[in-house]
Amino acid sequence: MAGHFIRYEGVHKSFGDKAVLRGVDLAIGRGETVVVLGGSGTGKSVLIKHTIGLHSPDSGRVFVDDVEIQEFDEEQLIETRKKVGMLFQAGALFDSMTVEDNVAYALREHTDRSDEEIRDRVREVLGLVELEDVEDLMPASLSGGMRKRVALARAIALAPRAILYDEPTTGLDPITANAINRLIRNLQKRLGVTSIVVTHDIHSAFTVGDRIAFLYEGRILFDGTVEEARRTTEPRLKNFLEGGGYG
C-alpha cells in the first residue's frame, strides 16, 4: 500500500529450534511513529532489524518505501539503509573513533561533501540531539545518555526518511530517559520521519508513540492508537501495561 513506508507481511524467523517471529503483520505509515511493545526476548529487536536487512526472514515479506527487500544482498541493501537510520540499544558507537568520526561516518562513505561541509553537518546533527563541543571525545568517555544521543546523531546524519529505535531508554535513569523521549518526539516533529520504537518501557511507549503494536509469542497481538491501548480489554496487553506479566 502506497501510504505505508515500512510493511512486514507474515514474517517468520527462527534461531535454531526457537521460533522468535511467527507471522508478524505490521504496517507503518509515512511520518507515523509506531511503538512495538513486548517483554524482553520476544523478538522486538529481531523484527526491526529485518527492516534494513540485518536479519532476513525465514518466510514472509518486508517492504521499505514500497520496495520488497528480504531477498536483497548487501550491495542491494545500500539504498534502503541510506533511507533508514537505526539507533542501537547500547549505541554501538565505533569505540576506536571520535564522536565526530562516528557521526561523520555515513557522510564520508556516501556523499561527496567537503571536510568543512561534513564538519558543519556533524555540528548540526549534534545540535539536534542537544550536544555541543563533544566532537573530539572518544565514546568511552561519554555517559550512557550521551552515547545514545551521539548514536542518534549518527543515525540521522544522512537525513534518513525513517528511524528505528532499539530500546532507546533502556539502562538510563528516569531523567535521562525522559530527555531521550523528548528528543525522539522533537525529531519526529522537526524531521517528519517515520519511526519504529522498540521498547518494554511503557512510559516511553505512551510518550513517543502514535500507535502501539504489542508483540506476543511472535505475533502482533494488538495494534491500535495509544488511547486504544490505554483502554484495551485484551487481557495479556492489559496485564503487561499494569506490570503484572502476560497473565
Binding site: I52, L54, Q89, F94, D95, Y105, E109
Partner: peptide, 15 residues
C-alpha cells in the same frame, strides 16, 4: 556490541 551491525546499518560493507 553491535558495532558490526551498526557498520552495516550505515550502508558500509563489513567485508
Amino acid at each position: 556490541t553491535e558495532q558490526v551491525d551498526a557498520l552495516r546499518a550505515l550502508a558500509a560493507n563489513p567485508v
